[in-house]
Design a protein around this nucleic acid. Structure first.
Length: 813
RNA sequence: GCCCCCGUAGCCCAACUGGCAGCGGCAGGCGACUUAAAAUCGCCACAGGUGUGGGUUCGAGUCCCACCGGGGGCACCA
């Protein structure tokens, strides 16, 4: 009889006492740092946590069993909006809700058997933590990497705060789904664009150990394009455009400026003023979602001025249009309708000329309506006629650089990271605004700038500016520089700032002389394994990489990349779709744990499929897992009764092979397949016991090996097995202190292997041969074999393929 | 629209560098134990060939091309 709850209740307190997961205590052992993306304390743990932390736990425990000194820390990403919204609703301070939830989750993590080192525990909303978030902000600012600027920003009307580009998904707020609007505001930014090249180029180091999908997403997000800046003269003023196709300069027939850019306003001729103002109003009313919809008809307005082509001197009309983006490139383009679809659409709509300058062999765009973008030979391009595209690009850029009027340039899609938020529950930006001194950093020795602890409920209601602004006693401070009356910056930092360095803090969570102890970081970082959801493919992972690179430039760390390997676990879904409260298809983790126990739920998650794949809870069988664990426990009980030193070679062999294979499987994160091997081993040992239990010593060793391997997946049941085998867990002889079994190489080689002999690809014979049989010998053996002779039936032989010792393929003439 | 990943049994999924398609489980069937049932144990692969059609190869689930289906990312990025 297997009672999972009794087993849990027995071992959890013992483990608490034994404190087996503490890092840094295995003297001389090689270090491994396994990080799970930390949790947001939104409530109790759910199925997604069970999946993600289950995977991380197998990896961490595996390395512990292999004898490494493993750091597997725990923490909470505890600043953020939900706490604030809950506080407003309940008339509380966000801290109350946050820390209550953290306690709930902490208990749940312990019960779930996650091998955390609890001494590493941190919360980003603790002043001891955000002190250093603020400190880092100031260091970034000193390096010119944190700055304020006024520009059109994404504004979420629901959450009443600005959002980073990365937090706008399909024109909507990533958090609440509200349609994002634009506002002109002065905000703080991190200059992540300075690191665009390194963020891109260093991905080489991650190739193979990060999912290629994530690398690709980051690459696309950074969006490096190579091209040129070209200067056009517009009414005596130089206006630069970015183009990836300088070779098509002779094909430019008009010029477009983003309608919402200041430039359009400045260039507009008086006689077009009225038309332009009307158009601009129209554009501003459009939401981003409407604006970005793909097959919208092109709109625009003539600005009544002309631009001069720097190569040809040709005059071309200048338009304002909303298909040109104000914040990409220079906000202005040269339009080449023959070779760019958007320009062509615009030209056809406004009756502008279409001039082919690259002959690609495709139909005339003016007639077909399809721009030609491929390679070809230049025409209608004066001195460049006859050149191919690539050569022409080089020549045009060289000529522009020599004569003035342009130069080669790289442009990025990536924008600077907007980090200020008009919300309460975050790290205050440690800056004071002084009427006399301007922007003044809060001195390091005055950090942290603490959040007021007495604000609650209605006072936190967002009103378009930070709730902190209304707290005058908090806002009004003497200027750190001149001592005169000044005001604190009332914005708080994006919570992604907090999470961009927590993995560094984990290495020395109580360090007081800096954000982290450089020596501790040198020992543990970069993290050997990072585990978390793919929803952070861009946001968190890009930001963390950026932080790491800045810290390297500051001399605080000596590596470029924070996470050597990344594993993205799948989601837990139900009946093919994501669980959600609104759909009413939630599976409650608590219910599952109550029904099947921790081990069975963990095993079920991990057995369902590869860790990267989604787990459909409708397709899996926690009951099956319970049955399996019960089987293992019965086996342990039966084997425990056996005694004697006799061994059984067949059992030893099965155990060795399973161990060998499982080692490779877990190492390669093929966690589900390893469970299949555990099951096979369990059946094999069961059969051996039922057959009369020859070799009790072998059986005992087999069950011990199984317990150790299983301990990574089903920690409670494994401990129970270990205990039944006679280990004194209470005195510290825990399965979680045991070492991963090793497989004697001698047991892994077979005396004979089965060689498959094919004739014309069909299996005609099987031969038992020595594993190191020579090719010639095997060929002769195969050709002489009865099955082959029969299959050939006297036909000649064209060729014989021999792959000793496993296969021979005889190809008849 | 562009880019990426995935299609193996009723279902979830295995198959090392191309080399016997099926390891493990769910569901199902048969049997043992039982007065009976549950639990337990044992046994059974059902696809005429790995979504479809081509190609490369002695040999393709695996490599290449096209298409179909599912999932994901980006989306007026000049």
């Amino acid at each position: 009889m297997y009672d999972p709850h009794a087993v849990q209740d027995r071992w959890l307190p013992v483990w608490d006492r034994l404190d087996l997961n503490r890092a840094g205590v295995r003297a001389g052992a090689e270090k491994k740092y396994v990080v799970d993306m930390f949790s947001y304390p939104s409530g109790d743990l759910h199925m997604g946590h069970a999946e993600a932390f289950g995977i991380g736990d197998v990896i961490a425990r595996y390395w512990m069993r292999r004898g490494y000194d493993v750091l597997h820390p725990v923490g909470w990403d505890s600043f953020g909006l939900p706490a604030e919204n809950a506080a407003i609703k309940r008339g509380e301070n966000p801290a109350a809700w946050t820390y209550a939830n953290i306690d709930i989750q902490a208990e749940a993590f312990k019960r779930y058997g996650v091998s955390f080192d609890w001494s590493s525990r941190l919360h980003t909303s603790d002043p001891e933590y955000y002190r250093w978030t603020q400190w880092l902000f100031l260091r970034f600012r000193e390096r010119g990497l944190a700055y304020r600027k006024k520009s059109a920003v994404n504004w979420c009307p629901q959450d009443q705060t600005v959002l980073a580009n990365e937090q706008v998904v399909g024109g909507r707020c990533e958090r609440c789904g509200a349609e994002v609007t634009r506002r002109e505001l002065t905000q703080w930014y991190f200059k992540i664009t300075d690191y665009a090249d390194r963020l891109l180029d260093d991905m080489q180091q991650l190739e193979g150990s990060w999912p290629s999908k994530v690398l690709l997403m980051q690459k696309n997000w950074i969006g490096r394009s190579k091209g040129a800046h070209v200067d056009f003269d517009v009414s005596g003023r130089t206006v630069t455009v970015f183009t990836t196709r300088p070779d098509t300069l002779y094909g430019a027939t008009f010029f477009v400026v983003a309608a919402d850019a200041a430039l359009a306003d400045e260039l507009c001729a008086p006689e077009q003023r009225a038309a332009f103002d009307t158009y601009r109003e129209q554009v501003r009313k459009l939401s981003d979602i409407d604006r970005q919809s793909t097959d919208r008809e092109k709109t625009g307005v003539d600005l009544g001025v002309t631009a001069t082509n720097p190569l040809t001197g040709e005059q071309m009309p200048v338009y304002a249009a909303d298909y040109v983006l104000a914040d990409y490139g220079t906000g202005a383009i040269m339009a080449v309708p023959a070779h760019d679809q958007r320009d062509l659409d615009f030209a056809l709509r406004f009756g502008l000329p279409v001039r082919v300058v690259v002959e690609t062999g495709e139909p005339d765009p003016a007639v077909s309506g399809v721009a030609t973008t491929g390679d070809g030979v230049l025409v209608n391009s004066g001195p460049y006629d006859g050149l191919r595209k690539t050569a022409a690009i080089e020549r045009v850029v060289a000529d522009l650089e020599q004569r003035g009027g342009g130069k080669g340039a790289i442009n990025y899609r990536l924008r600077d990271w907007l980090l200020s938020r008009q919300r309460f529950w975050g790290a205050p930006i440690p800056v004071v605004h002084c009427p006399a001194c301007g922007e003044v950093a809060v001195p390091d020795d005055q950090l942290p700038v603490r959040l007021p602890s007495d604000m609650k409920g209605e006072e936190l209601q967002p009103k378009g500016q930070s709730p902190l602004a209304s707290n005058r006693t908090w806002v009004e401070v003497p200027c750190p520089s001149c001592g005169g009356p000044a005001e604190r910056d009332t914005d708080t930092m994006d919570t992604f700032v907090d999470s961009s360095w927590y993995f560094l803090r984990y290495c020395s969570p109580h360090y007081e002389d800096g954000p982290f102890d450089p020596e501790a970081v040198r020992q543990w970082m970069p993290a050997a394994q990072y585990v978390g959801g793919v929803e952070h493919a861009i946001l968190h992972l890009l930001y963390s990489r950026f932080f790491t690179k800045v810290l390297k430039d500051m001399g605080l760390v000596d590596f470029d990349e924070p996470f050597t390997a990344l594993l993205n676990q799948g989601q837990v879904i139900l009946d093919g779709s994501a669980m959600s409260k609104s759909k009413g298809n939630m599976v409650q983790l608590g219910d599952e744990l109550a029904s099947y126990g921790v081990d069975a739920v963990r095993l079920t998650m991990l057995f369902a499929g590869p860790p990267e794949d989604d787990v459909d809870w409708a397709d899996v069988s926690p009951t099956g897992s319970v049955k399996y664990l019960a089987r293992v426990l019965r086996l342990a009980t039966d084997v425990a009764e056996l005694s004697g030193p006799a061994r059984d070679a067949a059992v030893d062999k099965v155990v060795a092979k399973t161990v060998d294979e499982c080692t490779r499987l877990v190492e390669g994160h093929r966690l589900n397949v390893a469970i299949a091997r555990f099951m096979e081993l369990t059946s094999a040992l069961r059969k051996a016991v039922d057959a009369g239990a020859a070799g009790p010593a072998s059986l005992r060793d087999g069950v011990e090996a199984l317990a150790t391997m299983l301990s990574c997946y089903a920690p409670y049941a494994a401990e129970e097995v270990w205990s039944r085998l006679g280990h004194d867990v209470d005195s510290g002889d825990s399965v979680h202190a045991s070492l991963w079994p090793s497989a004697a190489p001698a047991l892994l080689v077979d005396e004979t292997v089965t060689c498959v002999v094919q004739v014309a690809g069909k299996v005609r014979e099987r031969l038992e041969v020595s594993p190191d049989i020579a090719e010639d010998e095997l060929r002769a053996l195969a050709l002489a074999s009865e099955g082959v002779v029969r299959a050939l039936a006297g036909a000649g032989i064209r060729t014989v393929v021999v792959r000793a010792p496993k296969l021979v393929n005889v190809v008849p003439a």
